[in-house]
Amino acid sequence: MNATNGKVIAIECLRYDPQTDDAPHYETYQVPFTDDMSVLQGLQYIKDHLDGSLTFRWSCRMAICGSCGGMVNGVPRLSCETFLRDFYPEGLRVEPLTHFPIQRDLAVDQTDFLVKLRSIKPYIIPEAPKPVTEGTFLQTPQQMDEYYQYSQCINCLLCYAACPQYGLDREFTGPGALALLHRYNADSRDAGKAERMELVNADEGVWGCTLVSYCSEVCPKSIDPARAVNQNKVESTKDYFLRFVAPRRNG
């Protein structure tokens, strides 16, 4: 932390200590910074020099791990790829991801998402087991294109913080898990669609979505979760009506 050119920015942080506080409050820290410093580095400066009790999650510092998501001036962002210089001289407000319960300061309780992630069976379910001796699964570039963008998800939960329907109804499976569900359903190597449709077809599945589509705006990996969810409304509608016409494969 040298050569700051004398520039100092005010970072307003939400603080909440479950042992002493009934409600969160805000504290403002004056942080000297350089133009190449991210919001995450600003938080690290606070923890190292100003207040060691500030709690936040981070790991890779390069938009890969998905740990450091938070609200920066009310917008869901990865703090590692958001730069302090863009908020100078006004300063910025940092809060934990909205719609999730706050554990402490900037750390939220992710349990609800982790349960939902399991429920979508986030792994390839092949038609029949294929031993390594039989070689690899082959896929055309077009087959790969069907799911590739959705496989880029880093579980950062920015899309959940962008989704008012999730905030209003915690039963909703939500954009991230549903986009991952589609990632497996759209994969030519996968045969688990019928199992996953049970969730898609439920009120808690795709029907909690009203196509706000802010999830797709905030995704740091340029995934379009709103598309995955709404394509599956069409799939669910087909599934609903076609069962009267054509018998289902697995009874």
Binding site: E198, N201, G205, W207, K233, S236, T237, Y240, F241
Partner: peptide, 12 residues
Amino acid sequence: MKRSNRPIFWSL
């Protein structure tokens, strides 16, 4: 999970 009747109303 219960199948939703929303496909009818979503279509309309």
